[in-house]
Design a binder for these strands. Structure first.
Lengths: 232, 232
DNA sequence: CCTACCATACTTGTATGGTAGTGTGGTAGG
DNA sequence: CCTACCACACTACCATACAAGTATGGTAGG
């Protein structure tokens, strides 16, 4: 019994799905890019079936758009979705951070603290991708500590759209220090149980994510809906 | 050109997906029920492929659980998921109804009014399924009128779990009049722009959906996680 | 030169066969 | 009677073949 019972090797579908999703979120597969079941299957070394099933999943998340008998395309960024993702996060995270101020497990508090330390390291190294991951993890810990992990997962499906625009912004603008300070302030407010302060900073923090969206739409018009037709 | 250009006949996958999802939400396919690609394909008169792809979609929504090489099962109702769905709706719908009080299009206001009239009709006819649909439509109109339709859709993925427990409750308990009165009160508060009142009633309204959850878990233990093992 | 048509090379949708892993019931052995 | 084993039926996973719709480039006709 040397193969651990829980350590199932991931299915082809899962690996393909994860790979494609990562590439879309990283903008390695730019919005509007044409995909094809056959081509992806060749590139990834599997048959069309797992690729196709990944497309189904990605389509349900709104990351790709499948046009029958015509093709599959990486979805253009929809500004409405970005804004609504911010809207959802604003109201849900404000509520969660208030909960956290009332009661938050020590283990999760330590996790936040460790996370913040790693954020500093990433800023020193100018490792933006890593900082991005840590940012996600930070907020996840907040939800987890309040027993609202499923809520975080539900947000996730909208969040991918917000994250694509944030990734776009990451290239040009670098405001890491500000981001860290907000995270740190929220952490200390939670620790001190200062709900009003935590909620206020959280709201500001989430506004940061959509700042300059209009500027981005101007700079990369063909990445957005009704900016270009998407097929260059 | 008698076949309308927009009226694409739905794909097999779409019809299979819709059918299965409806049956799961109606509890015609009870939580814990074993499914199988082959059996479903025979019943629905299609091949295994569209069935399989429907399973993938349903699995992503958490409505079924696929265990490789073992089987596919209708998910048990997770009380944590139900509660978090309520949590999400509470905070998002409170925010939305406040927006609605500040500004709400006349067309949507009329739609709410019509919807309420139909609710009354459904209550007279004791048509619970129809009332359930109208309830969903009512809240959807609220989000739509505030330009937050995508947010409603995102809620939808959590909402299915809440709705299954509500459907379970519908069988035994019938509190339709109360539900209608709350809808009507919210409508009038929106019309009058009374945000505080609207928000308060909305919060109460959403609490109604999870009342007696413990009672339901007691009555149908094998429908819930850790109530029974799910495979009777 | 311009237009209409059509062969062709794509695309996704569906069906089916083979593979590997899993649960189960019957059976041989203690 | 109880236990260990094993053949078998069943599952989902993946690969592949076929079908049907779509965009495109070349060509024949005006």
């Amino acid at each position: 019994m040397y193969t651990n019972g829980r350590a199932q090797e991931p299915s082809a579908r899962e690996t393909v799905y994860a790979k494609l999703k990562e590439q879309i979120l990283n903008l390695e597969l730019a919005p509007g890019t044409a995909l094809s079941e056959k081509e992806s299957s060749l590139v990834l070394g599997v048959s069309r079936t797992p690729v196709r099933e990944s497309f189904v999943r990605l389509a349900q998340e709104g990351l790709v758009q499948v046009l029958p008998q015509r093709g599959t395309f990486v979805s253009l960024i929809d500004p409405a979705l970005v804004e609504e993702a911010r809207f959802m996060r604003e109201h849900l995270e404000r509520a969660v951070v208030r909960l956290a101020c009332a009661h938050f497990p020590d283990a999760h508090l330590h996790a936040l603290e460790d996370n913040l330390a790693l954020q500093l390291k990433s800023i020193e190294r100018e490792d933006d991708r890593r900082l991005f991951e840590l940012d996600e993890a930070y907020h996840r810990i907040l939800f987890d500590g309040c027993g609202k992990l499923n809520t975080w997962r539900a947000i996730g499906q909208m969040n991918v759209h917000l994250n694509r625009s944030r990734m776009l912004r990451l290239v040009a603008d670098r405001h890491w220090q500000h981001l860290y300070e907000q995270h740190d302030t929220i952490f200390r407010a939670v620790k001190a149980g200062d709900a009003d302060r935590a909620e206020r900073v959280m709201q500001e923090h989430l506004l940061l994510g959509v700042r300059d969206l209009a500027h981005l739409m101007d700079k990369y018009p063909h990445y957005f809906i009704s900016g270009g037709d998407g097929k260059p």
